[in-house]
Simulated scan of single mutants.
Amino acid sequence: MLAARGLKASFFVVGEALKQHRALAERAHAEGHWIGNHTLTHPRPLGESGTEVREIQAAQAELGALAHPDRLFRPSGAGGDLAPGLLSTAAVQALIAGRFTCVLWNAVPGDWKDPDGWVDTALAQIQQQDWTLLVLHDVAGACADRLDELLQRVDAEIVQAYPPACVPIKRGAVRRPVDRYLR
């Protein structure tokens, strides 16, 4: 669907899932999509797992050459909330030391929990802001069945970039405060 429209996206992959579906990630990478780190096992929320540094480093090792040069990382939250516990001091220190770019979001339509209504929710979220970073999921029953509908109905330019407000850490440099994501 993306290729048919000439669109590029970012795929933040869970390291354990990558072991089973590496060919899909290789295809996405070859087609120009950006591949980023979404932890090794997807603990929710990451910052309360007690294994944050291992989750980040092991997933990055699994990505290998597929990883975007900016070492893109998206933490796992609790239901899409940008709340305390999303990150920890140890996670932030690991992201800085590893020169990662931490990518957050400003729209999560709940595709995994509302397969019938997420498209309308996503469209409303997109209309509410100037630049939307929309998170969709590839789990069973999530966005895949209705992605084409979203792409047909969206009245916004789709670009392969991130709003600066959604990137608190870029290439290891803290650009926006992260304290509100720490517990």
Rank of each mutant, 00 (worst) to 15 (best):
E149W: 00
W112P: 03
K19C: 05
H29Y: 14
V108F: 14
T101S: 09
A90W: 05
A28L: 15
L7I: 14
C102H: 00
G85W: 03
L182H: 00
K19Q: 15
R54I: 03
W118I: 15
E62H: 11
A25R: 07
R171V: 04
D145T: 06
A124T: 15
A58T: 02
L104D: 01
G80L: 12
Q125S: 07
V167H: 00
A173R: 13
F12E: 04
A67V: 05
G79F: 13
D111P: 05
G79T: 10
R180M: 03
G98M: 02
E16S: 10
Q129V: 07
E55S: 03
E55Y: 08
G36P: 13
V119F: 05
M1H: 13
A23Y: 12
P164S: 14
E62W: 14
E26N: 00
L40N: 03
S76Q: 10
G117W: 10
E48L: 13
C166I: 13
P177T: 08
C102Q: 04
L2G: 06
L2C: 08
L150P: 04
A67E: 10
H68Y: 06
K170T: 10
K19H: 15
L2R: 00
A59T: 05
A161T: 13
A78I: 01
R54V: 03
A65R: 12
A30V: 02
R176T: 01
D155T: 09
L150H: 10
R71Q: 07
H68D: 12
L104G: 01
P43M: 00
Y162I: 01
G110Q: 12
A25L: 10
G32N: 03
P177W: 02
Q125D: 11
E16R: 15
P168S: 06
A140P: 06
N37G: 04
H137Q: 10
H137P: 07
A58H: 02
D179R: 06
F100M: 07
R99E: 15
L46R: 05
T89P: 06
H137D: 06
R27T: 13
I169Q: 00
H42K: 04
I35E: 06
Y162Q: 00
E16C: 05
V167R: 01
D116S: 12
Q93I: 01
G117D: 09
A161D: 15
I158V: 12
V135H: 02
L104T: 09
V174K: 11
L133D: 04
V13L: 15
R74C: 10
T41R: 12
L150Q: 11
I56V: 07
L24H: 02
G50W: 11
I96H: 02
D145C: 08
V178C: 07
L24G: 08
R71L: 11
G110Y: 13
Y181R: 08
V108K: 00
I56D: 01
G141A: 12
D116E: 04
R180K: 15
R175C: 07
L18M: 04
A94C: 13
D145A: 12
A144H: 13
E62M: 14
E26C: 02
V13M: 12
G32Y: 12
A90K: 14
P115A: 01
